[in-house]
């Protein structure tokens, strides 16, 4: 796999150039008259993996899309190291969606296309494509039509494509929810590699085990509100909120 020392953007685990902290101020999003995100105040300053958890319909995916700028908030704002999201910041972000979205092209062409959109050309482009495929263990599939890959391979390709853009923030929306455990573990390994290279990861997941393996801090969402935000250790050993406790026990959360 990847040499964990390569392309390290910072020194001693402290990364430079990350647009941190991420500050959410009274962040609100309404859709069809319903408040999907209901006035979230939150500060994320961890430069590692932030996990967003919560029951279905809590607003996790919407929050991720707001952070990535795919949708605009109805009210409130998000500040990245004190500045609002602008095209320059968006270009340093990448996202992996729950259902892999792959073009009707070869595996290599999918990565190449994304790099092309960022204006990366020539030898650097082919070098980055090769590197991404190696990272995802898909070299031998370079010429295969992307959409005939297995579900796990498709999601790995999506992640490799996102990483080839060398983002400094990576969003993932339940990337392993429909994958078998082995495929999910491969994705997790790639995520840890990415985080070690200095990429800030924000991950939505339902999988408590996965959250425990990856999270530096955890945000728990319910009914569009962030009802808990703790470092991972405290979150899993001593959740402050009754709903969080119930959720972690696998109980019903209403």
């Amino acid at each position: 796999m990847l040499d964990p020392v390569a392309k390290l953007q910072g020194i001693g685990g402290r990364t430079v150039g990350l647009p941190l902290p991420i500050e959410l101020k009274r962040l609100t999003f309404e859709r069809g008259g319903k408040r999907v995100i209901d006035g979230i105040d939150l500060v994320i300053d961890s430069n590692r993996v932030t996990v967003i958890m919560g029951p279905n319909g809590a607003g996790k995916s919407v929050l991720l899309r707001l952070l990535h700028g795919l949708i605009a908030p109805t009210a409130g704002r998000i500040m990245w190291a004190g500045r609002p999201l602008d095209p320059a910041l968006t270009r340093r972000q990448a996202m992996v969606f729950q259902r892999p979205v792959l073009l009707r092209r070869s595996v290599a062409a999918n990565v190449s296309h994304a790099l092309g959109l960022r204006g990366i050309k020539g030898p650097e482009r082919s070098q980055r494509v090769a590197e991404a495929l190696r990272l995802a263990g898909l070299e031998e599939h370079a010429a295969t039509p992307a959409r005939v890959l297995s579900g796990g391979e498709q999601q790995r390709l999506c992640l490799a494509r996102a990483l080839s853009l060398e983002p400094n923030v990576l969003f993932l929306d339940e990337p392993t929810s429909s994958l078998d455990p082995a495929s999910a573990l491969l994705i997790e390994r790639l995520l840890l590699d990415a985080q070690r290279r200095g990429i800030k990861v924000i991950l939505v997941t339902h999988d408590v085990g996965q959250a425990q393996r990856l999270a530096d801090d955890v945000v728990f969402l319910m009914h569009g509100r962030a009802i808990e935000h703790q470092n991972a250790e405290s979150f899993f050993t001593n959740p402050l909120n009754e709903s969080t406790r119930a959720y972690l026990r696998g109980g019903l959360v209403l």
Binding site: R65, H68, L70, P87, T90, R91, Q93, A94, M95, F97, V101, L103, R104, R105, H113, A114, L117, R118, L165
Partner: peptide, 20 residues
């Protein structure tokens, strides 16, 4: 969403869709 996430311009989006 994927194309917007990748930062595709309208022209790049049209070209992508035509090819795909």
């Amino acid at each position: 969403e994927q194309l917007r996430s990748l930062g595709a311009s309208p022209t790049a989006t049209i070209v992508t869709l035509l090819w795909d």
